[in-house]
Amino acid sequence: MEIFIALLKGLLPVAYLICLWFYGQLFFSADETKQSRWAKLSVAIAVCMHTALLFSLAAQYHRCPLWTQGEALLFLAWMLAIVHLLSEWSADTRRLGFFTLGPAAFCATVALSFLGKELMLDAQYRSSWFIFHIVASLAAYAAFSLAAVLAALYLTLHRKLKLKTFDLTFRKLPPLDKLDKLSAMWSFLGTLLMLASTVIGVWWVRRDGLHGMSPREIGIFVVLAIFLFTAAARRTLGWRGRRHAIWILAGFAALVLANLAGLHGFHF
């Protein structure tokens, strides 16, 4: 098992790099049919390897591989790849794979260098509610990441339209309306998942008698507030397009900052 895990750990970044290569070719070259086939195959292989690694780690540790930062990051990378596949399947965004899979490849590579180096979490955290909380959070992060990538692409295309720059990126990007709707959809989904995760987290903390409020919790509440406001403003004030994209990017930046603040600081 250890050899298999070591092999997967070595091959996974390579698999993601190959994916990015083919998706890059798909975006930047003319021969889309051929590149699309290779991109589809490469992402299927990378996701299968990633899934196999997560299952192997679970089998080796006899628990969900979510307890350390490295494991959580590896799981986040997997969620990002899944979210990319869902988007590709539901909204035909394969052309954007170079951008939407980029965060997955980055997180997976960073996670692998952290794996097995950290201390285990305290026994208090070994609750099944913790797993629900983490999975919902990571799914929300993945949805927010995709929304942020789409929002950034929206702003890129918006700028090109305003400046009348009809270059390759202009031609390859999907319509503004599609980018706007997709980023709104993924940010709303992320908001729902983040809300679910927060509710589970608060319930679990209260049940187990944990207390405390660290910068991370404050940051997450700020993130939630930004995304809830963005969704509400879109619906009620008609804040679509550029303004909406900027708010999504602001929310995502707040999310990154909140996570840089470190882990939860509860005490018992």
Binding site: L157, L161, F170, P174, P175, L176, D177, K178
Partner: peptide
């Protein structure tokens, strides 16, 4: 084509 690029 430009209309499609904006409105889909």
């Amino acid at each position: 084509e430009l209309a499609r690029k904006v409105l889909g």
